[in-house]
Design a protein around this nucleic acid. Structure first.
Lengths: 149, 149
DNA sequence: TTAGTTGCAAAGGCTTTGCACGCGC
DNA sequence: GCGCGTGCAAAGCCTTTGCAACTAA
């Protein structure tokens, strides 16, 4: 399979997902391929450089569509605006810097079903585990924390 | 140690935490001792039954103070208003019903540092792990899900 | 007394909604 | 041409902030 450039890859993803292929969606996917863990506003700013007419609200719509289609993953760390990333399969979680808000991926140490030895809690059926680690990123460890969180 | 009633226990907690003892704070703690995993609005409604002059904003202030003092724990499941509970020590997480929003406590199966075999990810220093499980509560398993999430 | 809290009102940040226009298929 | 997406504007939701009046210590 030859994919010549980023946009072609994005278009292919959209087609696979059965989504209509629009400029906005292609550019949003392109942006997320370049920068990860960014919020809707940041996505919008990047999109605006290539598609100046696309509003923040449209970016929200698009991100919502892409998330539903499973092309994009939405992370919602407590107290922060939602962040988006292109998902690369699953079973990775995130660590967020309590000082500057930087985010990094974390492959869960335990494996495919983290913290889930029993499959059932209080009669609940467990479907997903959302795991967010909080700590200090390397930069903030040196500078001393300012705790945004 | 004789604690005659709920309010006395709440007052004792406030004193221990070095917080000023006000009616609002006592009642909020009382409410949280009775009902757990409720949002600020629900707390406010319960408080209003005993202290009608206390506004929602004041409840927010109070919850924020109590959270900072460590008397109360704030849970922020993705896409829901923040929930509060009186903390009973730590190391328990939560499972939220994707259909009706019900919340239950989960003692993490792995122990004190769930999913944390290494203590360091990408140079980050890990301080806390926020873990939220999503699934269906017993009621919604029978009724069929309506997925709020 | 006096520093810490409350009550009220207003604003803030992020996200969702509604509706007419326009574009992908 | 039909129907889904977009653009724009406005509202929604929860929460925070500002400030004067009050009250616990």
């Amino acid at each position: 399979m030859f994919v010549v450039n980023r946009s072609e890859a994005s278009k292919a993803l959209l087609r696979q997902a059965g989504l209509r292929l629009t400029p906005g969606r292609v550019v949003v996917l392109d942006v997320l391929a370049e920068v990860s863990h960014i919020d809707a506003l940041t996505v919008s700013e990047h999109v605006a450089q290539r598609l100046p007419t696309t509003s923040l609200q449209s970016v929200h719509n698009i991100l919502s569509d892409l998330t539903q289609a499973g092309l994009v993953h939405k992370i919602e760390p407590a107290g922060m605006p939602a962040l988006y990333e292109r998902r690369v399969g699953d079973n990775h979680h995130h660590i967020v810097c309590t000082s500057c808000g930087a985010v990094a991926d974390v492959d869960c140490a335990v494996g495919s079903a983290p913290c889930l030895t029993p499959n059932d809690f209080h009669g609940f059926t467990v479907q997903v585990a959302d795991i967010v680690f909080w700590g200090l990123c390397p930069d903030c460890q040196q500078l001393g924390p300012t705790n945004i969180h």
